[in-house]
Computed example of a mutant assay.
Amino acid sequence: MDEKLMRKRKWQSTIFLIIIIVIAYLSADITNFNILHGIATLPAALGWIISNLFITQESLERLPDILVKLNETIFMSIAATTTGAVVSIFLGLMGSKTTRVNSFFSSLSRFIASVSRNIPVVAWALILLLSFGQNSVTGYLALFVGTVGFLTRAFIESIDEASQSSVEALRATGATYFHIVHKAVIPQCLPQMISWILFMIETNIRSATLVGILTGTGIGFIFDLYYKTRDYNTVALITFSIVIAVIIIELISNYIRKVIL
């Protein structure tokens, strides 16, 4: 019986692999993508990067302006994440099977999370751009909507995975809904929620660069400006600044996770 089951799984894996290969081949054929040509052009691409993307003394003089825009991007990402997290907590409580008020609000919460999460942040920026124009509000709202979608889903799963014993014990004593949430649910889920919030801050800083190109704000705007003027030395400095900032934020987040988890 075990041998037949293993043979069946092997055939399923083989068929699945063949399907993936066929889909990949058809996709390359439809898009006229030639992997051999792509590999052949790698040395030339690396050579261009080495010869053009390097930091000079002239580009370093623009560092103060770059840091101002970088700080704008970081703080906008933090603001969008924290405010989005507050909304996500309420939606998560309504959407979770453990703490839902009724099936209607539970379904509504999950629907909001699904729509917000499945539309990319860049697409949200394009949609909001039509209403709010090129400004920091558009960038903030795009990151906010994306954050609400992701964190609501993450919080729902975190609450669902919480221990039911303390919740049932409080219900048996006649505790109110808010007492159950405050005393049983939030204390158990808080470390995991903080971890998700920190992860979302890192993600939003990366996304904010692309959003800034569309909305004309933050580090994305200044990157696009110097890229279009072919000032590749300044582009290299901006890219290096973004990488360093993301690494620092990630190190801080990892340290906080080790402390709270």
Rank of each mutant, 00 (worst) to 15 (best):
R206P: 12
K8M: 12
V87C: 07
I21Q: 03
E250Y: 08
E72Y: 08
A24K: 11
D224G: 06
Y232H: 10
S166P: 13
A162H: 00
R153N: 07
Q12I: 15
M193C: 03
K183F: 00
S131M: 15
R100E: 10
T98E: 01
A85M: 10
L93A: 00
G149W: 06
V235F: 02
L70I: 07
S103R: 14
I50M: 14
Y255R: 15
I222Y: 03
D224W: 12
D65A: 13
N102Y: 07
M200N: 09
S165L: 13
R100I: 03
G95A: 02
I20H: 03
Y25V: 15
I213W: 05
R9K: 15
I66N: 03
E202N: 05
P43Q: 10
S163Y: 09
H37G: 07
I35C: 03
K69T: 05
I66M: 04
G216R: 04
I127T: 08
A45R: 13
P187C: 01
A45P: 00
T217Q: 10
V101Q: 02
V87T: 11
R62V: 05
L17C: 11
I238W: 05
D65H: 06
S241N: 12
I247D: 14
Y25R: 11
K183A: 01
N118C: 12
D231L: 07
T81G: 05
I49V: 15
I244C: 10
F111W: 12
V22S: 13
N204W: 11
V246T: 13
T99D: 00
I242H: 05
R9I: 13
F111H: 00
Q12F: 13
S158T: 14
